[in-house]
Design a protein around this nucleic acid. Structure first.
Length: 943
RNA sequence: GGGCGAAUAGCUCAGUUGGUUAGAGCACCUGCCUUACACGCAGGGUGUCGGGGGUUCGAGUCCCUCUUCGCCCACCA
């Protein structure tokens, strides 16, 4: 890079040009590309560290939720890359069956056509074309926020390779007897014209009406049963009224016939324990084809199952319903029919009453249409056997969910797992590989069959349905790695992966099912950590959404403040699992933390580059310990502390591969146990540790801003200005500390840190393709086996400066006015003597090592007992000082009283840990000394 | 209906196994263009840790209870 001289650098980081240039440079150098052969699993010396992107819909456009999700992944992957792992972040997209189909349907609707007008083949071709043209835009957008994914491995759930995995998975489950054809009531979306899984039919609160309808006895219209229903339109398909067998009210009616109003159809009264005696009237109308529970009741009693609602949600005689639908209702929309039937009931006098009834209704998760329960044939996966190892994995710590509360939700769901409806009546998706021959032999085939496996008939027809889109998503951790080829290079090197970063909304849709598929097809969990982050919300805590118009476009933020500002803001404000609040109305304020810090960092760098010059600096290790000044030692200490804090906040990258545990006595499953025993589990002490990205960000920020910039840089300004040996020491320490700070911050702010790091002196000696992005993650001196001289002596200096500044402010001494502070001569003042020039510069305070002159004075006592005295003659009135002293003394007396009370309490001294008691004793001595001192001053000054 | 969680500064949140005078960022107030940065510097905490009770030498932290809020699941028509 040809650079301007440091002094010509602008005062703000020019992110708009630098970000693109850096992205290009990184990609050219291939720093994001993972190499299987370097992993330990392939005989190399690097631990693999893999993150699989939660594939966004192929038609998706980047929104702030993606921004957050992918920033987290990128921070983790950059961290591990620097820490020496072979880091793979595998990007890709999801074909998103139902969602993409809806998009294309809308597109052709603009041409006045439906998918049925153009036919299945043309529709699929049209969708493929649309995806090819516009799909994957989001992956390009991810580059703009700095995503360091391995783009050479970009995957898509609908490629031939992944389709093969989907087919293989289905056939294997089929062969294991875990797939079956079910005839039952499922969730049906009348707009998408497809069945939905339980998870795809989401509950929404609604205030409906509860209609009480009287069904009279066929042979005695004066008697009857009143039932309650929220969906009177389904009465057209009623086949019975059920009561509880023990219900005295209805006992004599069981077995009798009722004549339904409106249709006049006769239906029996049956007894079934499913009915709740205490709900409504205790009588329940039974509509087996349009209610999942009624279906079960109907099966038990061998009842007919007429279908009176069509696929698109209208009234009609669909199946076994001859003569049930009155002509006037035929073809009506289901909700219109509801009102019409209610009117008809009212006219007949059969409508007893209508109550307001708050309840939950299910809606399609893609189009929000009210879901209709509907009798149909679908493919299901038996989930209980698959759930078992997935449940055990979380219980035994093979997989941890962060934050922990989601483990309970996960376990709760898996323990009550229900079978998964995987067939969809859509056109966009993987066709179900089941063929049925003319003789009715249905079977699953790995290859498209030319003849029936059973009877060799060549007249075969493929099931018209496609798979639930999640049936391909759940294979993501293995299909993207080359499965079903178990020898695939990537599968061997990078599976299982490490961390999955996603939103809790898809815990069941995706996360739990991936764990299941990992065990079902590879015998292992696909990752060891699931990081479930919060949601981005506006200031009213509403989820950001297009329809509410409260969204934030991440690319807009990148344009205004840079990708680093976006990333920093999101990471530093994100506690584990906590929602991030941003104000779409005030981007300046929302992204101030990131914008401000990026600029601060840039200016620290700018200053350092200007002061340090171009000549190479010696490594800090080469500096003799004796040549380090107080502040040098201090900043190196603080650096160690910051590294340790960052490491602690990030936590262990993976559970340690503990030595194989001794097999439990009596365990005979030697061979079987081995495959899973090899997968390490999180020790209880580490299960909730790490992944505190906000704490990591804060530790790094505090070091570079509050310690390096606020203190060290200020302290070394003078040394840098004067040529000589000490200047070289200062340069060495300064460059070292800043270099390490850039490393710590790089995962969060990759661009500004790389731009600065590339300009550090000594870069010329490095290889031309040396990047901060692949530089070594900092280690503490202790971790590196080096000795660390104590830097705490500088604390006295800092305290003295703080104290003088505080006193100045308190007494209203203007910043420009020089002051003198007196310190009684004492060997403990040695650090102050060494740093008195600093005190002069940073606090405009001349230090005098002598007794203070008599008269009004301000006092400050430093932590090690040194008293600092500022004469206030001519600067402040005595009364004010007296008042201040008295206030301090009062407060101290109160605190001392409490403290002495505790120390005098035998129970405390006997029961509290000795260390705590000792600390209290020390404190008591210090406070007592201070109190006596204050007493003296008050007497002397105030009489 | 079942399960889970939260309530700490104006806002968003930390607060590790109970142990100094409860912290951070943003916001706010005061003063500063001090040879990098006003997107900055220096100073300032503005709090009955939701209410009540209990355990303890000691409670923001543990237990009970009440209040409020949120999340997940569920076959009450």
């Amino acid at each position: 890079m040809s650079d301007p001289a440091p002094s010509d650098l602008p005062t703000h980081f020019d992110f708009s040009t630098s970000e693109t240039a850096l992205n290009d440079a990184w990609e050219r150098a291939g720093v994001f590309r993972a190499r299987a052969e370097r992993t330990t699993r392939a005989g190399g010396d690097r631990d693999p560290f893999t993150i699989l992107i939660p594939p966004p819909n192929v038609t998706a456009v980047l929104h702030v939720g993606h921004g957050l999700n992918n920033t987290v992944q990128d921070v983790l992957i950059r961290w591990r890359r620097m820490a020496g792992d072979e880091a793979l972040w595998l990007p890709g997209t999801d074909h998103a069956g139902i969602a993409t189909q809806n998009v294309v349907e809308k597109l052709i609707a603009k041409e006045g056509r439906t998918r049925f007008d153009i036919g299945r083949e043309a529709f699929v071709a049209r969708t493929e074309e649309f995806v090819a043209e516009t799909g994957g835009l989001i992956l390009k957008q991810l580059r703009a926020i700095g995503a360091s994914a391995d783009w050479s491995r970009t995957a898509y759930t609908f490629t031939p390779q992944l389709s093969l995995a989907v087919r293989e998975a289905f056939v294997r489950l089929y062969e294991r007897g875990l797939v079956y054809r079910g005839h039952r009531v499922i969730h049906w979306c009348p707009r998408c014209l497809t069945s939905l899984s339980d998870e795809e039919a989401e509950f929404h609160d609604a205030v409906g009406k509860l209609y009480h309808v009287r069904y009279p006895l066929a042979d005695d219209a004066t008697r009857g049963i009143t039932i309650a229903t929220t969906r009177p339109e389904t009465m057209l398909a009623d086949v019975a009224v059920a009561v509880h067998p023990d219900d005295e009210r209805y006992r004599d009616l069981v077995g009798k016939q009722l004549r339904m109003p409106v249709t006049g159809i006769l239906i029996p009264v049956i007894a079934d324990a499913y009915v709740d005696k205490d709900f409504g009237t205790g009588a329940l109308k039974i509509t087996p084809a349009h209610d999942a529970n009624d279906f079960e009741v109907g099966k038990r009693h061998g009842l007919a199952m007429p279908v009176t609602i069509t696929a698109d949600g209208n009234i009609g005689e669909v199946a076994d319903a001859g003569g049930r639908v009155p002509a006037g209702l035929m073809g009506l929309d289901r909700f219109e029919a509801r009102d019409r039937i209610a009117e008809a009931l009212k006219d007949e006098g059969a409508l007893v009453k209508v109550d307001v009834h708050p309840h939950s209704i299910r809606r399609c998760y893609r189009c929000n249409t009210v879901v209709e329960p509907r009798l149909s044939d679908q493919w299901f996966v038996k989930m209980a056997p698959l759930a078992e190892p997935a449940l055990a994995a979380v219980k035994d710590g093979t997989v941890r969910l962060l934050p922990e509360k989601w483990e309970k939700v996960y376990i709760n769901w898996l323990e009550g797992i229900r079978d998964w409806n995987i067939s969809r009546q859509l056109w966009w998706g993987h066709r179900i590989p089941v063929w049925t021959c003319e003789n009715g032999h249905a079977d699953a085939y790995r290859e498209d069959p030319t003849a029936c496996r059973v009877c060799a008939s060549t007249k075969l027809e493929q099931d018209p349905d496609v798979f639930d889109t999640w049936f391909s998503s759940w294979l993501w951790p293995i299909s993207t790695m080359g499965w079903p080829d178990e020898d695939a290079t990537d599968l061997k090197a990078f599976f299982p992966s490490d961390v999955l970063v996603t939103a809790p909304e898809i815990l069941f849709f995706w996360v739990a099912r991936m764990v299941m598929s990992g065990y079902a097809f590879m015998g292992r969990a696909p990752f060891h950590t699931v990081y479930l982050h919060g949601t981005v919300r506006d200031m009213q805590h509403r989820k950001m959404s297009k329809s509410l118009g409260n969204g934030i476009d991440p690319l807009d933020v990148v344009d205004r403040y840079g990708a680093d500002a976006l990333r920093w803001t999101v990471i530093q404000g994100m506690g584990l699992g906590v929602d991030v609040m941003l104000d779409p109305e005030d981007l300046d304020r929302s992204f101030a933390p990131g914008r401000n810090f990026a600029t601060k960092l840039w200016n620290i760098g700018r200053f350092i580059l200007m002061q340090v010059g171009e000549e190479a600096v010696s490594p800090v290790d080469a500096v003799k310990a004796a040549d380090l000044t107080l502040v040098d030692r201090w900043i190196l200490d603080r650096l160690d502390a910051a590294i340790a804090e960052c490491d602690a906040a990030l936590g262990p990258a993976r559970p340690a591969a503990a030595p194989r545990m001794a097999r439990k006595a009596g365990s005979k499953e030697v061979g079987a146990a081995d495959a899973t025993a090899a997968q390490p589990t999180w020790p209880p002490a580490e299960r909730q540790v790490g992944m505190r990205l906000d704490a990591y960000a804060e530790a790094a920020r505090r070091f570079v801003w509050n310690e390096l910039a606020d203190w060290y840089v200020e302290a070394v300004k003078q040394r840098l200005a004067e040529p000589g040996a000490d200047r070289e020491v200062a340069r060495a320490v300064l460059v070292h500390a800043f270099d390490r700070a850039l490393r710590l911050l790089h995962p969060i702010m990759p661009f500004v840190t790389e731009a600065l790091w590339q300009r550090l002196p000594g870069r010329a000696a490095l290889a031309p393709d040396a990047f901060l992005a692949v530089s070594e993650w900092p280690r503490t001196r202790a971790a590196a086996g080096a000795t660390a001289p104590d830097g705490s002596a500088f604390d006295v200096v800092r305290e003295a400066i703080d104290a003088v500044r505080g006193l100045r402010s308190e007494y209203g001494v203007t910043p420009g006015q020089p002051v003198r502070a007196f310190v009684a001569r004492d060997e403990r003042t040695a650090p102050l003597a060494e740093a008195s020039a600093l005190l002069q510069r940073l606090a405009r305070c001349e230090l005098v090592f002598d007794a203070a002159p008599a008269g009004a004075a301000a006092h400050a006592v430093l932590g090690n007992g040194i008293e600092l005295v500022l004469p206030l003659a001519g600067m402040v009135d005595v009364e004010k000082e007296c008042a201040r002293l008295r206030t301090e003394l009062d407060g101290l007396t109160k605190q001392l009283g409490a403290l002495r009370g505790r120390l005098g309490n035998e129970k405390f001294t006997a029961k509290a840990p000795p260390a705590v008691v000792e600390a209290e004793r020390v404190k008591e001595r210090e406070w007592t000394a201070r109190a006596e001192q204050l007493h003296g001053k008050v007497k002397e000054l105030c009489g």
